[in-house]
């Protein structure tokens, strides 16, 4: 079965990103396909590589990046939501005259159409938020 995941909250403040991660891992373990993981609202904050949690805690961002690498996952950060919250890749930084980018490995910035497409092309679209 084909799943897509929508993450509507950022890391740490809410459990949403943790739950989405555990669900994604369990779905992959069960042999399902993950079409896309879409980050919206404050969920875009899961995609900044500037995150540096204490050593004894999980690194939510790195964990997503590693899972994406291991399973070739498509992780999309919504461009409009990202612009509001200061999540930028090299192209976005250049376009808006910013002095640096902060997108984490494995994430890409794209439009809301990617969320609708995930809804159309997946058997189930799971939403994790608050």
């Amino acid at each position: 079965m084909i799943f897509s995941i929508m993450v509507s909250e950022g890391p740490y403040t809410h459990q949403a990103s943790d739950s989405a991660y555990q669900f994604t891992k369990a779905a992959l373990d069960a042999g399902h396909e993950i079409f896309r993981i879409f980050f919206y609202h404050d969920g875009v904050n899961n995609g900044t590589r500037m995150t540096t949690p204490p050593q004894d805690d999980r690194n939510i961002v790195d964990r997503w990046s590693e899972l994406a690498k291991a399973h070739d996952l498509d992780m999309v950060v919504c461009v409009a939501a990202a612009q509001r919250r200061g999540i930028v890749d090299v192209d976005e930084a250049k376009r808006h005259g910013k002095d640096g980018d902060n997108i984490a490995e494995g994430f890409r910035i794209s439009g809301l159409g990617q969320l609708i497409e995930a809804g159309v092309k997946s058997d189930r679209l799971m939403q994790f938020g608050d």
């Binding site: 809301l112 159409g113 609708i116 159309v120």
Partner: peptide, 19 residues
């Protein structure tokens, strides 16, 4: 909270997909 505003943005984009 921003949910209503950003939700509306999804609806408007979604409308272009003829669903």
């Amino acid at each position: 909270s921003i949910y209503a505003l950003e939700g509306l943005e999804v609806v408007l984009i979604g409308a272009a997909f003829d669903q």
